[in-house]
Design a protein around this nucleic acid. Structure first.
Lengths: 379, 379
DNA sequence: GCACTTACGCAACACTGTTGCCAAAGTGGC
DNA sequence: GCCACTTTGGCAACAGTGTTGCGTAAGTGC
């Protein structure tokens, strides 16, 4: 069977739902709950309560998942007054995904199992400006070594995280700052052909945000991943879904104007957060950089009403406490602020999730649930 | 039958999908397409192509819609080489919804048919500070007169648009600026009891945005409705859905900091867009107010990658051309800018859509579609 | 030892969209 | 006028979903 969710929403597609879509949706949902349950596992009865389906339906669905090898029984839980529950668990090794992080000066590839855990990782220096063939060759080489070392497991596909701007839907790079020669390069299809695997391309910040979203609880998660490195960008997760915007352009967090008539920015405006912030970083004034980041974060939190803010990127990770302090001060306890738990690996692991997320009904712009609207009440 | 979509995504609910959910989803989808088709109507074959369902399934679905009175046959289209298509149309009068716009100094109520068109509208002065009983009484009175004049049609429910902040999910008002006595008032339930109707409460800007979203094409629509009146707020539609945030707090567009260390704002920060903008308005400098609005809009467009910007609110409507010019100048043709077509009525009509939208699978935070993800391609 | 609770499967069922086939109603070539 | 062809749409049988009703397994508590 193929427990890939077909749930999603996009223009120009066919939104009608048939029985196959229904089945896949529920299968992805259950698989996602099993993933969230992790080592603990979950009983059929518990899954029934969480999904709203009948226990019998859950039995059928989990039966299919077990038959296909994605789930397995794993002991039983102590009784709570009746028959003890039989636990079901996701089988992590049932499938794997590749994550590829293309950065300006480095290439990182990782092999993740179904839970998203990295099984093996390799990093190599990269000259991103060396052109398409050289970069694709480097990726193919590193991937080959990685897979050989891991014993050539079955791989579902590869997720690629790259600096923006780029087009997620079409899988094409745009004019990456500092590397104009990449403009228009069909990275997804080119790499897909090279690896003979399905490939998904996304911005590094979006990949990171997706990975972080999958580590949290299903739905509800609304947060911003703020990435401060050579540039300043954001990955947005709104209502559990990565928000990419119509042209994968969302997340241009660094080019909000914070000081009218401030210093000019390469983007054409004056007083952008990025110029101000990078200037403070260059001057060694971390506290000021952090406060500026905080002002921008506060603007974002107010505009989107998100739940929390996560900071990442090389500059932040060099002095995480200072940045958290500064941002927290500006947010005035409106929402919690933290540093990404994965550190530098956040982006690669997120890249692998580009492949895994659809299995659990967590595709980026897609919906994750069906339920009656609760905002209406009969008087 | 009950063609109400049960599609949606929210925390703590039951995301499992069963046959009833499937049926309602498809019924809402077809009904939505019929609404979009308007006077033109649509043939079964056309609906089949648009939904991706088989013609036979569409026949069954439209059969149920016709039986329940929501749709009807309406002549036939000229042949294109075969049997001429039988057109189906939404029956606008099959159901109605009430829209209520509570403003600081005025109350507007409207009766809308299924297409969202206003059948009758009444406006009355309102002392919003007079307290719960007085305001509820005024609403009930105006609604009674409106319904009597319209011949007491069947009404599905009432949508209420009010100044924020408020809680959409719980239907409770919060500390409305200038009227602290409303804090915690359960407006949805109180009015629901008074009118004996289901009631949905939302921020005025969100209601307006929803109404505008339903006038455009299905899905894809990503835009911001910027409302400049006594305050400055925004209604956000991202990927066809109203984005309300976790606590209906999204849209605080006016309190983004645009000038570090600028003049203080009642919100506690300095240099908020709203203070700067309202100051320019008070000084009669419309051009400056428009440019400031444009800078804020540009920040928003870059952050969210939306498709277009619509301006509304009393201040804008007093001199629409000037504001469109100013905002357009700052956006540098990145996205189109326009004024809301409905003028002052935008909010009330949007309020009625709070009731109607779910019928067409267009509920605020809900998903609208099921389809395979297109961002992955096999190499 | 017995009543009760909880977990879960089997079988029959209701209802969804799908498939195969056919009728209706036009156009266009001869 | 006739016939082939296209397009629309319905009828009937079908496959497959989750649901319902009921029975069984396996514990707890008195």
């Amino acid at each position: 069977m193929r427990p890939v969710s077909t749930i999603g929403a996009g223009p120009g597609t066919h939104p009608g739902a048939n029985l196959a879509a229904l089945r896949d949706h529920n299968a992805a949902l259950v698989l996602g709950l099993l993933r969230d349950a992790g080592e603990r596992g979950a009983s059929r009865a518990e899954l029934a309560v969480r999904t709203g389906l009948t226990p019998q339906a859950v039995s059928k669905i989990t039966g299919r998942l077990r038959e296909s090898g994605f789930a397995a029984e794993a002991g039983r839980r102590a009784s709570t007054g009746g028959k003890p529950a039989t636990l079901l668990r996701l089988v992590p090794g049932a499938a794997h995904a590749l994550g590829v992080h293309l950065d300006r000066d480095a290439l990182t590839v990782t092999l993740a199992d179904l839970t998203g855990a990295a099984v093996a990782t390799r990093t190599a220096p990269l000259a991103f400006g060396a052109g398409g063939d050289a970069v694709l060759g480097a990726v193919a080489r590193e991937v080959a070594v990685l897979l050989a070392e891991a014993g050539a497991p079955a791989v579902l596909g590869a997720g690629v995280a790259a600096p923006g701007p780029l087009d997620h839907r079409g899988g094409v790079l745009h004019r990456v700052t500092g590397f104009p020669q990449w403009d228009g390069f069909p990275l997804r299809d080119a790499l897909g052909e090279r690896l003979a695997l399905p490939v998904t391309l996304d911005k590094d910040t979006n990949a990171a945000a997706l990975g972080l979203a999958l580590r949290g609880p299903r739905d509800a998660a609304s947060f911003a991943y703020l990435h401060l490195g050579t540039g300043l960008g954001a990955g947005l997760v709104l209502g559990g879904r990565v928000h990419r915007g119509a042209r994968t352009g969302a997340g241009e967090f660094g080019h909000q104007v914070l000081r009218l008539d401030g210093p000019p920015c390469p983007c054409g405006n004056r007083g952008c957060l990025e110029v101000l912030c990078l200037a403070a970083v260059a001057a060694g004034d971390t506290a000021r950089a952090a406060r500026l980041l905080g002002v921008g974060a506060a603007n974002l939190v107010r505009l989107l009403d998100i739940d929390h803010v996560l900071l990442g990127g090389r500059t932040v990770l060099a002095d995480p406490d200072a940045y958290v302090r500064g941002v927290r001060a500006e947010l005035a306890d409106a929402v919690p602020v933290g540093v990404v738990p994965g550190g530098e690996r956040t982006v690669v692991e997120g890249a692998a999730e580009l492949v895994l997320a659809p299995l659990f009904g967590r595709a980026g712009s897609a919906a994750t649930a069906l339920h009656p609207d609760e905002a209406t009440r009969k008087g």
